[in-house]
Computed example of a mutant assay.
Amino acid sequence: MPYPVLADALRLPHVQAEPVPQREAAARAALLELRRNQCPELRTWTTDDPAPATDTVLAVVDNEGELWRTTPRTGEWHLEEPPGRRGAGATLFGWRELLSEFGPVTEAVGHSDPDHRLEGRAQ
């Protein structure tokens, strides 16, 4: 399943109309709406939403289409390492840190893509 990504949101006319310092925040808000509208069966979170139970959500896709995983009940998230890329998942993030740096995030489904990047689609 292709997920919209931040680059898609940055191309939207209403995001482009924002002053440069506000564009990333506008793009993140637009991405949240894109994902909630295009993937209504999946949960998408931003910093304003309560954290999910870590025993039910094991993988999410960040605003660039990267796959993040958690070990149940730890609350720690790491970037899934694609084959041939070492050290990418070495840094652990708490839920709020993950959302602040890479949000919004969406539940991951069908994440068997060999390079672990879930392609975005142009809007």
Rank of each mutant, 00 (worst) to 15 (best):
Arg36Asp: 02
Arg36Cys: 06
Asn37Ala: 14
Asn37Val: 10
Gln38Pro: 07
Pro40His: 07
Pro40Tyr: 09
Glu41Gly: 09
Leu42Tyr: 09
Leu42Gly: 05
Leu42Ala: 12
Leu42Cys: 09
Leu42His: 09
Arg43Ser: 14
Arg43Thr: 14
Arg43Ile: 14
Thr44Val: 02
Trp45Leu: 08
Trp45Tyr: 10
Trp45Gly: 05
Thr47Lys: 11
Thr47Gly: 11
Thr47Met: 12
Asp48Arg: 14
Asp49His: 10
Pro50Val: 09
Ala51Asp: 10
Ala51Val: 07
Ala51Gln: 12
Pro52Trp: 06
Thr54Pro: 05
Thr54Gln: 07
Thr54Val: 09
Asp55Asn: 11
Asp55Cys: 11
Val57Phe: 08
Val57Ala: 08
Val57Pro: 03
Leu58Asp: 01
Leu58Ala: 08
Leu58Asn: 06
Ala59Gln: 07
Ala59Val: 07
Ala59Met: 11
Ala59Asn: 05
Ala59Cys: 13
Ala59Ile: 04
Val60Gln: 01
Val60Pro: 01
Val61Leu: 04
Asp62Phe: 03
Asp62Leu: 03
Asp62Pro: 06
Asp62Cys: 00
Asn63Arg: 00
Asn63Pro: 00
Asn63His: 05
Asn63Ala: 06
Asn63Leu: 04
Glu64Pro: 07
Glu64Gly: 12
Gly65Met: 04
Gly65Val: 00
Gly65Ile: 03
Leu67Glu: 06
Trp68Gly: 03
Trp68Thr: 05
Trp68Asn: 02
Thr70Ile: 06
Thr71Pro: 00
Thr71Trp: 07
Thr71Ser: 11
Pro72Gln: 08
Pro72Ser: 06
Pro72Tyr: 05
Arg73Tyr: 15
Arg73Gln: 12
Gly75Trp: 00
Glu76Ser: 13
Trp77Glu: 00
Leu79Ile: 03
Glu80Tyr: 11
Glu81Val: 06
Glu81Met: 11
Pro82Ile: 00
Pro82Lys: 00
Pro83His: 05
Pro83Met: 11
Gly84Arg: 13
Gly84Tyr: 14
Arg85Thr: 11
Arg86Ala: 15
Gly87Met: 06
Gly87Pro: 04
Ala88Met: 08
Ala88Phe: 06
Ala88Pro: 04
Ala88Asn: 06
